[in-house]
Write a protein that binds this DNA or RNA. Sequence first.
DNA 1: CTTGGCACTCTATAATTGCGAGTGCTAAAT
DNA 2: ATTTAGCACTCGCAATTATAGAGTGCCAAG
Lengths: 350, 350
Amino acid sequence: MSDITPKKVLSERAQHLLRVLVQCYIQEGQPVGSRMLSKLTELDLSPATIRNVMADLEEMGFVHSPHTSAGRVPTVQGYRLFVDSLLTVAPLQSEEVAALKLQLAPDLAPQNLIELASNMLSGISRMAGVVTMPRREHRALRQVEFLPLSDNRVLAILVMNEREVQNRVIHVGRAYSTAELQQAANYLNAEFVGKDIETVRQKLLQEMQDTRERMNSMMQAAIEMAEQVFPLETDNDDYVLVGQNNLMDFAELSNVDKLRVLFQAFNQKRDLLTLFDQCVRAEGVQIFIGEESGYKVLDECSVVTAPYSVNGKILGVLGVIGPTRMAYERVIPIVDMTAKLLGAALNQRG
Amino acid sequence: MSDITPKKVLSERAQHLLRVLVQCYIQEGQPVGSRMLSKLTELDLSPATIRNVMADLEEMGFVHSPHTSAGRVPTVQGYRLFVDSLLTVAPLQSEEVAALKLQLAPDLAPQNLIELASNMLSGISRMAGVVTMPRREHRALRQVEFLPLSDNRVLAILVMNEREVQNRVIHVGRAYSTAELQQAANYLNAEFVGKDIETVRQKLLQEMQDTRERMNSMMQAAIEMAEQVFPLETDNDDYVLVGQNNLMDFAELSNVDKLRVLFQAFNQKRDLLTLFDQCVRAEGVQIFIGEESGYKVLDECSVVTAPYSVNGKILGVLGVIGPTRMAYERVIPIVDMTAKLLGAALNQRG
DNA sequence: CTTGGCACTCTATAATTGCGAGTGCTAAAT
DNA sequence: ATTTAGCACTCGCAATTATAGAGTGCCAAG
């Protein structure tokens, strides 16, 4: 147990100073000088002493001086150390949690829940909130319904799982009567209810090849329609982002060019989606500080994410995007809790 | 027929110069000087002569000098004259129209059509596109369906008109079997299909008061559920706005404070909605230049709107929002055509 | 009525200055 | 050995001043 790495490890004091520095910088947004730090800490140290420590911290890459006579600013590495070991997260007030819980009324459609969660994230954090669309899996068919429209078209209604309802207009070869459609629906319901959508699809294809000629007209009708109703499910890569506008309030982003690039990335969606996809694996809250995300557009931003899950199955990821200089101790529990609440709300299927 | 108002009316030449000035300013974005105008017009006039005309135009309030030694910039009044009588709108190429038409595939759900239209407006104009949600009226009930969920909850599916499908989870007093729900649905369908939603609502209320004690259990169940399924339809005041980001590209809006205010107004929605509501009455394309809209946030913007309608019934309004300095001759036909195409696409109900 | 000439005004850009904040270093103090 | 006070130094920021250029208004001549 000999204590090697006596230089590599930060002294208690240095850590404390770094913590205060980061907190101060997060609050004020301006480089923190030695005098300020000396006032802020309880340790009665003169600015000169603190300058020495700062020099060390700078050497180790935790802080950085924008120019000779400015105070110090945390580097990404500094923020990283801060969130990893210096941070004390304040858990949310139970009343706050209750209020959030109330908003996410479990009867709402998944889509609404997603939007609400995104709104909550953005509203509480005063930054941008993101929620990826939930992965759709185990989509058991519950019911199929057909309604005749004019011009050889049919309105198909699919009920899946508990409350997912989809509908689409399909074109058919000839006009069908309501009764015929009823029959076709009955047939499909009898055959496929409870089965997974993907399974249904495959069985249908098989059935078409096997027995086309042996089918009666009713079955033919059913198959013709079902073919269009159960298209290959492309995983809907998408997310709901709320509160971009909040980002305009932050000084470090308040020039139009940076904003434009950032907002365009939000619209593009691609980069953000791949970033969020990485977080699906993570157990809990994950934080990307500045360049860590790997996307240039997010260089001045941090992203705090957490996966949300139902019954242990991770369905998606949500998070908050804001300037690197964000109140991590506040954002982290917010993201964490929202993920849990959203999971719970989505779960209420019984 | 004596020609009074010899001073009030603009000379042919003044009009021409104003037109060129506005066009030039719209393109370049910078105050237009007399030398530039002298080069741009075919009339071989020296800058000095043009200065005289400009002095007149300024006196009459059509142009304005930002400061002593800058060129002239159109005032709102100048723009107004321009769009009212100096403008020559270039109708869209027929191929462009065809491409747009193709996008608005009539089988899509109304919601999708709205979003597509908004996307188109924003995409072609490179500004922000807005489409208000269509007024919902004549919402004839086509079918009601109930599916049992756990915990005394029922999934209700409502089909209205041609392809509008709504669904919501409702709470009921006790658990119902699938068969019971079927019966209830059958009852409601038999009684109310084809009727207007509002009518249905009222009849239900009446029925409840009249005959509560005389109802059999099936009817009671039906009524209990229908009560929740047909809530008072609050007119969904909302719109789909796409391409805010485009507005960041314009110099006159490229300071963060103006953008923030503008974007906040977009989020608030209230002001824009009341503005768009005014346009419902207008026959065709309507233009609000700068302050004309009456909303301070839009002082530096112009809004070009057109109502869209199905079978002569105006359902909503769409338009483009951009800087006052926008290419009106291009935007006007775009808005006009999109309104027509959207109306047509929504109309395709067989 | 049009035009060239000319003085004038005003802005935008760059260069200059002074101020204040904060540092690094050194030497003294603990 | 650590801490501290002192001090010269650096650098950015804001205010000031200088400069160039664009465009005007007006007048007198064409």
